[in-house]
Write a protein that binds this DNA or RNA. Structure first.
Lengths: 243, 243
DNA sequence: ACCTGAACACCGTTCAAGT
DNA sequence: ACCTGAACACCGTTCAAGT
């Protein structure tokens, strides 16, 4: 505590500029490392050395690496709820846009998915994202249990789709090397024998030299349209829907 | 140690003699440890000591811990494709049943989700599961790109829904202790202030002392029904649909 | 209050050496 | 062929001690 003074306001703020560290700086560095090198590249020691500090000092701001990951998760979730949220579009476009921005964020930070599973997710940005979705759906007429279920349906599709996409990309990255083309082709032949439909789909994809980006977007939009159609059919009323 | 390759499945297993270890025994032990203690509890040294062997010896059968996780993943995927697959039900019940068994498996082995994201998934059971889904949808009349997209839609929903469920459970487990009831209530009050809709939904859930199992099942079925409705609407023809 | 330095109890992986 | 034992280069976390 600094020397006492007649009033807090007569004394300048604590010399906080001397602090080399802060929770925000640590989280920002963690996100940068995760983006650049994935979950494997992240260690407390790495973050500390990037910040010119000892590993132990991080624990002054963060109780555990797990907690740091929770903070990093919520940090990037902040990218989803943009200013486009309050648009006056119909509920379909509004919710679809939210889902697309959510997906885009997960593709920018794929490490999020590897930590989402068993981890609680109650940060301010996660809550704001949920509120944004609930607002759209509530205006569209959903309430009570259907409101929860409708939002969950769209959110779950986003994370499921991006999970599948990153898994597909990982497989392509590893078999993409020229050294493995022969092996991969042989493996594909075997697959086609035992699994005719799958083999046909895989060779169709290989033959068309498919653009993975576009194909993933197409599948994402397909299921999203199915879901939104389903929600539309179950939409009870149009309270607040001025259109 | 075997030569590295892009995926375990592109390389035959090492020939066998009488030996204390085998790939199957190692994978079985890994799955058991993962089920009992989660991904954190798994280490090469732990598996080795469980099998009465040194850590280094595992590398005779497996090139890397990552590859072992690929094998463990496919191992539990084998639980999904049961004998019920070839039932003569309509395509809706058949596909829905497959999705439900998939979900049940993921709930039994929640560690799968934390490894699904960046990992290739080309094991025999993953392929068999895909073929089963393609068979159902193909008989229902889907073909080409819609066939892929329809299967992806259902699969993605399964993994997204279980991801959300495990995350919810993790949050409940941590705030469930009696010491945190006060803190949690205060936090909920704050949430309700800034996020009225979310706050309302959360206190509705808390007030009803909601059964998480049932609620998760309900949401899962809700979105699944939306998807199946959407697929039905997009179903081009009924080739092979004798009904 | 904030950070260092060293320590503790772990990791995955490699590899010569044994059998 | 299969496994040991020891080593290497890491981890997350704690904590007395400094400033």
């Amino acid at each position: 505590m600094p020397t006492p003074s007649p009033s807090v306001w007569l004394r300048p703020e604590r010399p906080s500029r001397d602090r080399r560290l802060s929770r925000a700086r640590i989280v920002a560095r963690a996100v940068a490392v995760l983006d650049a090198e994935g979950a494997r590249g992240l260690s407390m020691r790495r973050i500390a050395s990037d910040l010119g500090v000892t590993a132990g000092s991080l624990y002054w701001y963060v109780t555990t690496k797990d907690e740091l990951l929770e903070l990093a998760l919520d940090d990037v979730l902040g990218e989803v709820v943009g200013d486009g949220t309050a648009s006056a579009d119909g509920w379909r476009d509004a919710l679809g846009g939210l889902a697309r921005r959510h997906r885009a964020m997960l593709l920018r930070h794929p490490w999020v998915l590897s930590g989402l599973a068993g981890r609680p997710n109650l940060g301010p940005n996660a809550l704001a994202l949920a509120e944004a979705g609930l607002t759209i759906l509530s205006r569209a007429g959903f309430a009570d249990g259907d409101l929860d279920a409708a939002l969950a349906a769209v959110n779950d599709h986003v994370v499921g789709a991006v999970t599948a996409e990153t898994s597909w990309r990982a497989a392509l990255d590893r078999t993409g090397g020229a050294e493995w083309r022969e092996q991969a082709a042989e493996h594909l032949r075997r697959i086609a024998e035992e699994h005719p439909l799958l083999g046909a789909r895989m060779s169709a994809a290989a033959g068309a030299e498919i653009d993975v980006d576009r194909e993933c977007e197409r599948r994402f939009a397909f299921a999203l349209d199915c879901l939104l159609d389903g929600l539309e059919a179950r939409r009870p009323s149009a309270r607040g829907d001025v259109e």
